[in-house]
Design a binder for these strands. Structure first.
Length: 401
DNA sequence: AGGTATTCACATGAAACTATTCTCTGAGTTAGG
DNA sequence: TAACTCAGAGAATAGTTTCATGTGAATACCTGT
């Protein structure tokens, strides 16, 4: 009697007290109305942006800080407040938030400007037009009335790394093209050294003001977690010490609040799934494992075939404890391409692929010199060995082996 | 022994190429008046 | 004659290839003692 079993399960599920009250508040895109331990930065940013209330162009701001230190959160919060205040006072201020890392949305100059133009009601094709045409469209749509525009560009370091700093130069120059409107830019960067290798002209005009967000320490993380968990979880489902442990884990990782919240959320999900009514410390460990495992498996699954073959070659060598070098991998890669029926890439490209796999954290690839015997990368796997069989399965499936 | 020069096996960079997707334009075609 | 179709030119973009140059240290080769 499968059916009754299932219905028992379902009604059981409904009878049980839910752990979560509002799970959304643990998701990374949630903006809380209260941001603990960032009062200073909020105040500073507000002070910088305040001239906009009088319709004066605020300075451009640059915000630095490691991931999960509340940069996005704070800037969105402050700008939104300013926007509301301006609306109340009938001051024509507008803002637009854009994450420059989003694939296919804002990760090139063309797409960034196109996305902005779209934000102001233009219909812009995804490709086909020259870039300066897009600039014209954007300027047109912004300049049709007198207004102040605050652009929040999140993770611009990624964009500039990819397409160069010309785009920032164009952006700062935009103001001279505008007759009625003015644009202020808030640039957000994870990379603390970002402006160091920037064109000095861009640097001086873009970072008129700078804000640094230090990482949270464990105690601050606890406050954040407690605050959120009050919204997210039902009363009393979190056992003693859970929050502290979450905070400690995340503090170890340069104080990333996002990680801490994710950890708590996944721990909650695991607890719920195993039919337990209280989140205990053990679940945090399994949550951490699960997050890491999911991340790795997901990355591997979504890689192109060429990457998968390369990784598979590395995997095959890994067992015997010998060090592996690019040359070995490439040889094996060629063979595998024959087996799978794919046209092999050049060694140049495979070398880049290995470097990218390293960036993704799937392998460790260190460039070493073997003296007389050349220079190469020393490669080893960087995934926990317990996930290896699963990875093999995914790769075999992806490659049709 | 100590110092310098070679040399290997790739790494790293830059530019050019390929293929795909998409717009715009203008010539040619069609249908209706 | 206005509306429509369709090919061709140009752009953006991602993924590669081609060509060129760089590089760290184990060895080979000197050199003077």
């Amino acid at each position: 009697m499968k059916r009754s079993k299932l219905s028992v399960f379902l009604s059981d599920y409904l009878d049980r007290q839910p752990l979560f009250k509002d799970k959304l508040s643990l998701q990374s895109n949630y903006t809380p109305e209260n941001i603990p331990h960032r009062e200073e930065q909020i105040e500073e940013l507000a002070r910088i942006l305040a001239p906009s209330l009088r319709m004066h162009k605020p300075s451009n701001v640059f915000i630095y800080g490691k991931s999960g230190t509340g940069k996005t959160c704070v800037s969105q919060y402050v700008v939104k407040e300013i926007f509301e205040a301006c609306k109340k006072n009938k001051v024509s201020v507008n803002y637009y938030y854009l994450n420059c890392k989003l694939k296919k949305v804002a990760d090139t100059e063309y797409r960034l400007i196109a996305q902005l133009a779209r934000g102001f009601g233009q219909t812009v094709p995804a490709t086909g037009l020259p870039t300066d045409e897009i600039y014209k469209l954007f300027i047109e749509s912004v300049d049709n009335k007198k207004q102040l525009l605050i652009l929040i560009l999140d993770e611009i370091d990624q964009l500039v790394n990819k397409v160069g700093d010309g785009i920032l130069y164009n952006l700062t120059r935009l103001n001279s093209e505008l007759k009625n409107s003015q644009i202020s830019i808030i640039g957000i960067s994870n990379d603390l050294m970002f402006t160091d290798n920037l064109d000095p002209r861009v640097k001086s005009s873009l970072s008129e003001e700078e804000l640094v967000f230090p990482p949270y320490n464990a105690l601050q993380l606890q406050d954040i977690l407690r605050e959120r968990s009050r919204i997210a979880f039902a009363e009393g489902v979190i056992k003693e010490g859970v929050i502290e442990k979450c905070a400690a884990y995340a503090a170890r990782e340069h104080g990333d609040a996002r990680r801490a919240l994710e950890l708590l959320r996944v721990a909650g999900e695991l607890t719920e799934r195993s039919n337990v009514s209280e989140i205990s410390i053990e679940y945090i460990d399994s949550a951490e494992n699960k997050i890491e495992k999911d991340r790795v498996l997901d990355i591997i699954r979504t890689q192109p075939k060429q990457f998968q073959i390369t990784l598979y070659s590395i995997l095959k060598y890994n067992g015997n404890g010998k060090s592996i070098f690019t040359g070995d991998i490439y040889e094996d890669y060629l063979k595998m391409c024959g087996d799978v029926g794919l046209k092999p890439l050049t060694q140049r490209r495979v070398s880049d692929i290995v470097a990218e796999l390293d960036m993704l954290g799937l392998i460790n690839a260190k460039v070493i010199s073997k003296g007389r015997y050349g220079r190469t990368r020393q490669i080893s796997l960087a995934v926990p060995s317990m996930t290896l069989p699963k990875i093999k399965d995914i790769l075999k499936e992806g490659l049709g082996l």
